[in-house]
C-alpha cells in the first residue's frame, strides 16, 4: 500500500527511510568517534587560497553566472541558436502560435 508499482518497477519510500534512519544512526556514532574540536582562533579557519591574500567578501563569492562554464562552453553553438529564438518580441510569440497551428493542421489533415 505504501509503495507504488509501475508495472516495470517499484518504489517503497517507507523502507528506504527506515534504512536511512538506521544507517544515519550508525554513521553518526562512527563519526562521533572522531575528534570534535578545533582551534577557532588560529589561522586555520581562514579559507585556503594557496597563500594568496584574501579578497573582500564580495569577490570571494563565485557568481551564479560563472557556474557551469564547462557546460555552456561545450554547447556554445546550441545556445547561440536558442537565445536568438527567444527574441522577447510579442509578434514572434503569436507567430510561433500560428506556425505550430499550421504544422499541427497539416499533420492532422494529411494523416
Amino acid at each position: 500500500m505504501f509503495s507504488i508499482d509501475t508495472g516495470s518497477g517499484f518504489w517503497n519510500p517507507i523502507l528506504w527511510v527506515l534504512v536511512i534512519i538506521i544507517a544515519f544512526l550508525m554513521m553518526y556514532i562512527l563519526r562521533s568517534l572522531g575528534r570534535k574540536d578545533y582551534r577557532k582562533t588560529t589561522e586555520q579557519i581562514k579559507p585556503f587560497l594557496s597563500g594568496n591574500p584574501e579578497l573582500e567578501k564580495d569577490k570571494m563569492h563565485v557568481r551564479g553566472s560563472n557556474l557551469y562554464w564547462g557546460f555552456r562552453e561545450s554547447l556554445k553553438g546550441f545556445y547561440n541558436v536558442l537565445l536568438k529564438l527567444h527574441s522577447g518580441n510579442t509578434s514572434d510569440y503569436i507567430l510561433w502560435f500560428v506556425v505550430i497551428m499550421a504544422i499541427f493542421f497539416i499533420i492532422i489533415g494529411v494523416i
Partner: peptide, 10 residues
C-alpha cells in the same frame, strides 16, 4: 515599437 519593448528576453 514592439521591437524595442523587449527587456524581457532570453
Amino acid at each position: 515599437d514592439v521591437r524595442r519593448i523587449r527587456r524581457l528576453r532570453e
